[in-house]
């Protein structure tokens, strides 16, 4: 999943570096607060682990072998912020000292493997394994699921980065300048192997390692002694929301309309006719938030401001929906074991 140099255009990799910079800053601050002067060797050793784990080949069904990427295990054991720094370090060492993964793509590689993967793994692990007193079996299964989902989330993000290249960087005659395949090719090409092969390898290895660590050295799970989940989860969500909201105006600067956000007229231009249902639907939508803009805010800068305001409204609405769904899922009865232990 290491994106080499030459696969992504500057429009993408510069934005990814931009997205990673605040993340690294926050992660460094958080890790410094807990590890103090100890942070340098500890992060380095966690980075060593996330490098070395890729060397452990595991027999996979069908006579093949595979290896885990380690970001999920690091997140489960050390917490997502420390894991994020550790995996970033490993990726930078690989890119600069071993020529594995592009130097221009460091931002993009860190975003998929050092942000999306550890945070997804950690959120799924924490929400599935229940309280600290849950059985090791349950924690093992939770770790496996977290490994599977997080690897696929990272692979999906990578495939989107590949797939948008022909859309945002082509010559006027349609020649793609970087990764040549559109989303409809890039997504299946990446996802089939991750959903059906690598995801399961990651799941099994993550589960087995977490199970082993609970038996051999339970004290190593420093992520559990950090603050309770809810506060941290909301902090991550807010950080992600802030990054996305701030990056939104870049969509305004870029020429053309974002892919998939065409108005009826543009679709007409692109495919030769306007689907009837589409034009009707657009009128309904315009009534609610006319083309993402508020009449009082006009002009170029007004439009950017309106875009951001509309974005915030959209984020709050979708946030409420996600929050409601999450509440429904997590509002489960405590297990028998938990009742006994409490």
């Amino acid at each position: 999943m290491h994106i080499p140099d030459g696969y992504l255009g500057p429009q993408t990799y510069i934005v990814m570096y931009g997205a990673m910079t605040p993340f690294w800053a926050v992660a460094a601050k958080k890790v410094r607060a807990t590890l103090k002067a100890r942070q340098a060797p500890m992060i380095a050793m966690a980075a060593v682990f996330s490098f070395v784990i890729m060397m452990f080949n595991v027999p996979a069904p069908g006579g093949t072998t595979g290896h885990a990427t380690g970001a999920a295990i690091a997140a489960i054991v050390l917490g997502p912020w420390a894991a994020s720094l550790a995996v970033s370090t490993a990726l930078v060492v690989q890119a600069i000292l071993f020529g594995d993964g592009g130097i221009t793509a460091i931002g993009a590689n860190c975003f998929t493997m050092a942000v999306i993967m550890p945070f997804t793994a950690w959120i799924f692990y924490k929400s599935l394994c229940g309280s600290e007193n849950s059985s090791v079996r349950r924690k093992t299964i939770a770790a496996g699921i977290a490994g599977y989902i997080s690897l696929n989330a990272a692979a999906f993000a990578t495939s989107i980065l590949f797939g948008i290249q022909p859309l945002i960087a082509s010559r006027p005659d349609g020649t793609p300048l970087y990764s040549p395949y559109p989303l409809k090719v890039a997504i299946p090409a990446m996802m089939v192997e991750h959903l059906f092969i690598f995801g399961f390898v990651e799941a099994v290895v993550t589960a087995l390692i977490v199970g082993y660590l609970y038996k051999a050295e339970p004290a190593i799970f420093t992520s559990e002694v950090t603050r309770p989940m809810r506060k941290s989860v909301s902090a991550i969500l807010w950080a992600a929301v802030a990054v996305i909201t701030i990056l939104t105006p870049i969509g305004m600067i870029a020429p053309g309309t974002a892919w998939g956000e065409w108005s009826a007229e543009e679709i007409g231009k692109r495919i030769g006719f306007i689907p009837q249902g589409f034009s009707k639907l657009q009128n309904v939508w315009n009534a609610l938030l006319p083309d993402y803009s508020i009449p009082a805010l006009s002009g170029k800068y007004g439009a950017v401001g309106a875009y951001i305001i509309s974005g915030i409204v959209g984020i709050i609405v979708s946030g409420l929906i996600v929050f409601a769904i999450a509440k429904l899922i997590t509002a489960r009865k405590p297990s028998k074991q938990e009742l006994e232990s409490s």
Partner: peptide, 8 residues
């Protein structure tokens, strides 16, 4: 997996 865990 045990060796990988031990490595950590």
């Amino acid at each position: 997996a045990g060796r990988a865990g031990h490595t950590l």
